[in-house]
């Protein structure tokens, strides 16, 4: 086997020996026109609901009360929260056992995979046209918190909506300092790999609940 450095040189030199085609850079891609916050919220809601997510508007009440109702309805016995300081929530009477993603996953795997019904996360924003939640900071929201528990409840501040993925890329300036992992979530996990029949909860959450709030 050729040493790796040789493989690199050979591949690059073959590419450099090929005919050069000079092209201009693609024009900056246009984003949809600015839209009103209400329009974007309505679009977001329709979008993510089409992907089988449940959207609950908690703006008229405080979200912990709505959360408590969801936990009761869905019989959630164990709820995992992000690390300390990210979300302020105290245990409540007849509520689920609360745990926190407050240590490295290596010591948390059994609890996360086998003993947690649901997780609570906060989205950093959302994309209106596709109905997509954004999680852009693994330090605040561990990657697996939105992935492993069967029910994922996500808080979204409705003031943080972007019209499109393209406009989010431009507005956030992620390219200047990429998060270690940027996750876009549109609905619960799903598959149509068996005879094109849609089934939810393939490997990730079976249910995704989005709580709309302005109170974070």
């Amino acid at each position: 086997m050729t040493p790796p450095s040789v493989a690199r040189e050979r591949i690059l030199s073959r590419l450099r020996a090929a005919p050069q085609i000079v092209m201009t850079a693609p024009a900056v891609l246009t984003s949809p026109a600015e839209q009103s916050p209400e329009t974007m919220l309505e679009q977001f809601r329709r979008g993510i609901e089409a992907f089988h997510a449940e959207v609950i508007d908690a703006r008229e009440r405080t979200w912990p009360i709505v959360l408590a109702e969801i936990c009761a309805t869905k019989r959630i016995a164990t709820l995992m929260l992000p690390p300390v300081g990210m979300v302020n929530l105290q245990p409540w009477l007849d509520g689920p056992r609360l745990s926190r993603f407050d240590r490295p996953i290596e010591t948390l795997k059994t609890e996360l995979f086998d003993a947690t019904n649901a997780s609570l996360t906060i989205a950093d924003g959302a994309i209106a046209d596709t109905g997509t939640l954004i999680q852009s900071d693994p330090q605040r929201m561990p990657r697996t918190l939105s992935l492993v528990p069967p029910i994922h409840i996500c808080l979204l501040d409705v003031r943080h909506l972007y019209p499109s993925l393209q406009s989010a890329v431009a507005a956030t300036r992620w390219a200047e300092a990429m998060p270690s992992n940027l996750i876009f979530i549109t609905g619960p996990s799903k598959t149509a790999d068996i005879q094109q029949t849609m089934a939810y909860g393939a490997h990730g959450p079976r249910e995704l609940v989005v709580l709309l709030t302005e109170d974070l």
């Binding site: 693994p138 561990p142 993925l165 940027l182 619960p188 990730g204």
Partner: peptide, 24 residues
Amino acid sequence: ATGQAITTYFNWISSPRRDGEMDG
């Protein structure tokens, strides 16, 4: 590919687990 405006997950990876992160 599948006639969806977007898939359930877009996963953009730019680095291994960084200091202060709990997973990855």
